[in-house]
Design a protein around this nucleic acid. Structure first.
Length: 199
DNA sequence: TTCTGGATCGACT
DNA sequence: GTCGATCCAGAAA
Protein backbone atom coordinates (compact mmCIF):
# COMPACT_ATOMS: atom_id res chain seq x y z
CA UNK A 1 0.00 0.00 0.00
CA UNK A 2 1.16 3.52 -0.72
CA UNK A 3 0.19 6.91 0.63
CA UNK A 4 -1.71 9.01 -1.90
CA UNK A 5 0.44 11.86 -3.25
CA UNK A 6 -0.44 15.61 -3.31
CA UNK A 7 -0.88 15.34 -7.06
CA UNK A 8 -3.78 12.89 -6.59
CA UNK A 9 -5.79 15.46 -4.62
CA UNK A 10 -5.08 18.33 -7.02
CA UNK A 11 -7.39 16.83 -9.64
CA UNK A 12 -10.26 19.35 -10.14
CA UNK A 13 -12.72 16.54 -10.98
CA UNK A 14 -14.29 16.18 -7.53
CA UNK A 15 -17.01 13.84 -8.78
CA UNK A 16 -14.39 11.42 -10.10
CA UNK A 17 -12.41 11.66 -6.86
CA UNK A 18 -15.48 11.09 -4.67
CA UNK A 19 -15.92 7.75 -6.44
CA UNK A 20 -12.23 6.91 -6.72
CA UNK A 21 -11.73 7.43 -2.98
CA UNK A 22 -14.11 4.53 -2.25
CA UNK A 23 -11.95 1.61 -1.15
CA UNK A 24 -9.04 3.85 -0.15
CA UNK A 25 -7.96 3.69 3.48
CA UNK A 26 -8.12 6.65 5.84
CA UNK A 27 -5.54 6.57 8.66
CA UNK A 28 -5.14 8.69 11.77
CA UNK A 29 -2.47 8.67 14.43
CA UNK A 30 -3.32 10.12 17.81
CA UNK A 31 -1.41 9.67 21.06
CA UNK A 32 0.72 7.09 19.29
CA UNK A 33 -2.30 4.99 18.38
CA UNK A 34 -3.01 4.30 14.72
CA UNK A 35 -6.57 3.66 13.54
CA UNK A 36 -7.85 3.28 10.01
CA UNK A 37 -10.98 2.61 7.99
CA UNK A 38 -11.77 1.70 4.40
CA UNK A 39 -13.77 4.53 2.83
CA UNK A 40 -17.19 3.14 1.87
CA UNK A 41 -19.33 6.26 1.40
CA UNK A 42 -18.59 9.81 0.18
CA UNK A 43 -20.27 12.97 -1.05
CA UNK A 44 -18.91 15.50 -3.56
CA UNK A 45 -19.20 19.26 -2.93
CA UNK A 46 -18.36 21.01 -6.16
CA UNK A 47 -17.33 24.44 -4.92
CA UNK A 48 -18.45 28.01 -5.49
CA UNK A 49 -21.37 27.01 -7.73
CA UNK A 50 -22.70 24.45 -5.23
CA UNK A 51 -25.58 25.75 -3.12
CA UNK A 52 -25.01 22.96 -0.61
CA UNK A 53 -21.38 23.95 -0.06
CA UNK A 54 -20.16 26.22 2.71
CA UNK A 55 -18.08 27.88 -0.01
CA UNK A 56 -21.10 28.69 -2.20
CA UNK A 57 -20.69 32.01 -3.98
CA UNK A 58 -17.01 32.06 -3.09
CA UNK A 59 -17.85 32.66 0.57
CA UNK A 60 -14.51 32.86 2.30
CA UNK A 61 -14.49 32.99 6.08
CA UNK A 62 -12.32 31.75 8.91
CA UNK A 63 -14.17 28.43 8.81
CA UNK A 64 -14.24 27.86 5.05
CA UNK A 65 -10.66 29.02 4.53
CA UNK A 66 -9.48 25.39 4.62
CA UNK A 67 -11.43 24.59 1.45
CA UNK A 68 -9.57 27.28 -0.51
CA UNK A 69 -6.24 25.59 0.09
CA UNK A 70 -4.50 23.41 -2.46
CA UNK A 71 -6.01 19.92 -2.72
CA UNK A 72 -4.67 17.41 -0.21
CA UNK A 73 -5.64 19.16 3.03
CA UNK A 74 -8.37 18.40 5.54
CA UNK A 75 -11.44 20.54 6.24
CA UNK A 76 -13.15 19.73 9.52
CA UNK A 77 -16.04 21.54 11.13
CA UNK A 78 -18.56 21.12 13.89
CA UNK A 79 -22.15 20.32 12.95
CA UNK A 80 -25.22 20.63 15.18
CA UNK A 81 -22.88 21.71 17.94
CA UNK A 82 -21.99 18.07 18.54
CA UNK A 83 -20.50 16.25 15.58
CA UNK A 84 -17.26 16.73 13.71
CA UNK A 85 -17.42 16.20 9.93
CA UNK A 86 -14.31 15.39 7.90
CA UNK A 87 -13.77 16.61 4.33
CA UNK A 88 -10.96 16.02 1.88
CA UNK A 89 -10.07 19.26 0.07
CA UNK A 90 -9.33 18.69 -3.61
CA UNK A 91 -8.49 20.63 -6.79
CA UNK A 92 -6.09 23.57 -6.93
CA UNK A 93 -5.72 26.60 -4.68
CA UNK A 94 -8.77 28.91 -4.53
CA UNK A 95 -11.08 26.27 -6.02
CA UNK A 96 -13.03 25.15 -2.91
CA UNK A 97 -14.06 21.61 -3.86
CA UNK A 98 -14.21 18.85 -1.27
CA UNK A 99 -15.23 15.27 -0.61
CA UNK A 100 -17.13 14.50 2.59
CA UNK A 101 -16.31 11.07 4.05
CA UNK A 102 -19.64 9.69 5.29
CA UNK A 103 -18.73 6.13 6.27
CA UNK A 104 -15.77 3.77 6.64
CA UNK A 105 -15.29 0.09 7.42
CA UNK A 106 -12.96 -0.43 10.43
CA UNK A 107 -9.58 -1.64 9.16
CA UNK A 108 -6.86 -1.12 11.76
CA UNK A 109 -6.74 -0.38 15.49
CA UNK A 110 -10.11 -2.08 16.01
CA UNK A 111 -9.86 -2.16 19.82
CA UNK A 112 -9.12 1.58 19.94
CA UNK A 113 -12.06 2.28 17.63
CA UNK A 114 -14.32 0.06 19.73
CA UNK A 115 -13.44 1.86 22.95
CA UNK A 116 -13.94 5.29 21.33
CA UNK A 117 -17.37 4.23 20.09
CA UNK A 118 -18.32 1.94 22.98
CA UNK A 119 -19.58 -0.83 20.72
CA UNK A 120 -18.32 -3.79 18.70
CA UNK A 121 -16.60 -3.32 15.34
CA UNK A 122 -19.15 -5.80 14.00
CA UNK A 123 -21.88 -3.25 14.70
CA UNK A 124 -22.23 -1.37 11.44
CA UNK A 125 -23.16 1.86 13.22
CA UNK A 126 -19.63 2.04 14.64
CA UNK A 127 -18.38 4.15 11.72
CA UNK A 128 -21.36 4.74 9.41
CA UNK A 129 -22.31 8.41 9.18
CA UNK A 130 -19.94 11.39 9.00
CA UNK A 131 -20.06 12.16 12.73
CA UNK A 132 -19.43 8.53 13.59
CA UNK A 133 -16.45 8.31 11.24
CA UNK A 134 -14.76 11.18 13.06
CA UNK A 135 -15.48 9.74 16.47
CA UNK A 136 -14.25 6.28 15.46
CA UNK A 137 -10.97 7.62 14.06
CA UNK A 138 -10.50 10.23 16.80
CA UNK A 139 -10.82 13.17 14.39
CA UNK A 140 -11.50 16.54 16.01
CA UNK A 141 -10.71 20.19 15.22
CA UNK A 142 -7.00 19.66 15.91
CA UNK A 143 -6.95 17.76 12.60
CA UNK A 144 -8.31 20.73 10.61
CA UNK A 145 -6.17 22.14 7.77
CA UNK A 146 -3.65 19.29 8.04
CA UNK A 147 -1.89 17.90 4.96
CA UNK A 148 -3.25 14.44 4.14
CA UNK A 149 0.30 13.37 3.34
CA UNK A 150 1.64 13.83 6.87
CA UNK A 151 2.00 11.68 9.99
CA UNK A 152 -1.25 12.57 11.78
CA UNK A 153 -3.82 11.87 9.08
CA UNK A 154 -3.33 10.35 5.64
CA UNK A 155 -4.91 8.11 3.00
CA UNK A 156 -3.43 4.98 1.44
CA UNK A 157 -4.28 3.23 -1.80
CA UNK A 158 -5.27 -0.34 -1.00
CA UNK A 159 -5.12 -1.32 -4.66
CA UNK A 160 -8.83 -2.11 -4.65
CA UNK A 161 -10.55 -1.01 -7.84
CA UNK A 162 -14.27 -0.66 -8.32
CA UNK A 163 -16.34 -0.34 -11.46
CA UNK A 164 -19.48 1.75 -11.87
CA UNK A 165 -21.43 -1.45 -11.19
CA UNK A 166 -20.02 -1.64 -7.67
CA UNK A 167 -21.01 1.94 -6.82
CA UNK A 168 -24.45 3.35 -6.05
CA UNK A 169 -25.11 7.08 -6.42
CA UNK A 170 -27.92 8.98 -4.68
CA UNK A 171 -28.73 12.59 -3.72
CA UNK A 172 -26.69 14.01 -0.85
CA UNK A 173 -28.00 13.79 2.71
CA UNK A 174 -29.30 16.75 4.69
CA UNK A 175 -28.94 19.41 2.01
CA UNK A 176 -32.60 20.15 1.19
CA UNK A 177 -31.83 23.87 1.54
CA UNK A 178 -29.64 23.63 -1.59
CA UNK A 179 -32.77 23.77 -3.76
CA UNK A 180 -31.98 22.72 -7.35
CA UNK A 181 -28.67 21.23 -6.24
CA UNK A 182 -30.26 19.08 -3.54
CA UNK A 183 -31.30 16.32 -5.95
CA UNK A 184 -27.98 15.90 -7.78
CA UNK A 185 -26.60 12.34 -7.47
CA UNK A 186 -23.39 13.31 -5.69
CA UNK A 187 -23.42 10.77 -2.89
CA UNK A 188 -21.58 7.54 -3.63
CA UNK A 189 -21.28 4.26 -1.73
CA UNK A 190 -20.07 0.72 -2.22
CA UNK A 191 -23.09 -1.38 -3.10
CA UNK A 192 -21.94 -4.52 -1.32
CA UNK A 193 -20.65 -3.02 1.90
CA UNK A 194 -22.64 -3.00 5.14
CA UNK A 195 -20.86 0.05 6.63
CA UNK A 196 -23.13 2.65 4.97
CA UNK A 197 -25.03 5.45 6.72
CA UNK A 198 -28.31 4.55 5.02
CA UNK A 199 -29.47 2.84 1.86
C1' DT B 1 -24.01 42.13 20.84
C1' DT B 2 -27.56 39.01 19.86
C1' DC B 3 -30.01 35.59 17.13
C1' DT B 4 -30.57 31.58 14.13
C1' DG B 5 -30.09 27.14 12.32
C1' DG B 6 -27.29 23.30 10.79
C1' DA B 7 -23.34 18.31 5.23
C1' DT B 8 -26.11 14.40 12.71
C1' DC B 9 -26.67 10.77 16.21
C1' DG B 10 -28.82 8.00 19.44
C1' DA B 11 -32.48 7.26 22.72
C1' DC B 12 -36.97 6.35 22.99
C1' DT B 13 -41.91 5.00 21.32
C1' DG C 1 -40.72 6.91 13.11
C1' DT C 2 -39.95 10.90 16.14
C1' DC C 3 -37.36 14.12 18.74
C1' DG C 4 -33.98 16.39 21.83
C1' DA C 5 -29.08 17.41 22.50
C1' DT C 6 -25.84 21.26 22.16
C1' DC C 7 -22.82 25.15 20.40
C1' DC C 8 -20.37 27.65 17.03
C1' DA C 9 -20.12 30.31 12.63
C1' DG C 10 -22.32 33.60 10.11
C1' DA C 11 -25.46 37.30 9.60
C1' DA C 12 -27.92 41.11 11.20
C1' DA C 13 -27.69 45.25 13.60
Amino acid sequence: MTKLKPKYYQNPDVIFLAQDLLGKILFTQKNGEITAGIITETEAYFGEEDKASHAYGGKRTLRTEAMFQTGGFSYIYLCYGIHHLFNIVVSHKNDPKSVLVRAVEPFEGLSVIESRRRRSACDKTISSGPGSVCKALGIDMTFNKKPLTGEEIWIEDSGLQYSQDDITSTPRIGVAYAREHAALPLRFYLKNNRYISKK
